[in-house]
Amino acid sequence: MGTADILIKFALIVIIFLISLLIAMYSTYAERKVAAFFQDRVGPNRAGPFGILQPLADGAKMFLKEEIIPTHANGFLFIVGPSLAIMTACIGSAVIPWGQKLTIGTHVIDLQVTDINVGVLYIFGVVSLGVYGVMIGGWASNNKYSLLGAIRAASQNISYEIAMGLSIISLLMTTGTLSLREIAEQQHGWHWNIIYQPLGFLIFIVCAFAETNRTPFDLPECETELVGGYHTEYSSMKLGFYLFAEYINMFVSSAVMATLYFGGYNFPFMHSLGLSENWVTILGVIVLFAKIFFFIFFFMWVRWTIPRFRYDQLMDLGWKTLIPLAIANIVLTGLWMTFIK
């Protein structure tokens, strides 16, 4: 590995990091516009044409707000909470294959930061680590509502992680690999995993909603019961980090869903268009982002359509419906693999 390769890798990491932040920024704008559309309003339209500068204005506001650390809060852990939340949100994108290989001169650029052979499990590990940010922040605030929010987040994440893991197992049985690059390559030419694993995908997307704390599963920050949930005591950019982490998580989980079930960067007739390899790769990246944007829109669509669950209904759905369904899916996949395929 020469210096040029290291520089290319470094540039790739920086670009992906910046894209995640940019998409998270404009997701806040999109969320408000989508909400406005669903509620027959105009939405933000003051800052710039169509309100396009709204995220910048929001960011400036966040930075200029007063920074408050409550007197009885645990000072160090109060800062660690949001930092951990945003860190775990940002490291998830490291194993996602954004496209095929680009060839520039003699350099072959792999559009993936790292292709570890336990990629799916890495994503899963990062997801399970994400709950620490919420728990530590909620506990360190020294506030009853924050603590209740943190505890809800922990129990919800652990419950839905099990169903999510089980739904991934049946996917791994059909693909036979844990590397996200290989999973994406196998789906070339309409062999999208959604066709083989429709039930698995349904379970996965429900769990993704729960893991990112999005409505209808946003009970950790349920404002009708818990004021603001785990971030009740937070203000200024520390609150901004929590909100930002949620949008980055949404982006990463959309990317994971697009890669695992919807063919990743593959698109129909990609090798019969008569374009050169580099153009096919660039088109593939654009197609992957189109799929990701669709899923981000789906997250928002559900948020403004379905009301919030009650807490016991949430637990019932997780333990009594999704886990048995996921186990049944594993058994069915096993039977299908042995007898039909």
């Binding site: 499990l121 590990g125 399970s128 620490y132 728990m135 129990s155 652990i158």
Partner: peptide, 20 residues
């Protein structure tokens, strides 16, 4: 990665949960 998921991601979250 299993140590990461099982111990850090599940068991210690439960520890923290109970302690809180």
């Amino acid at each position: 990665i299993v140590n990461f998921i099982v111990y850090m991601g599940a068991i210690l979250v439960l520890f923290l949960y109970t302690l809180m």
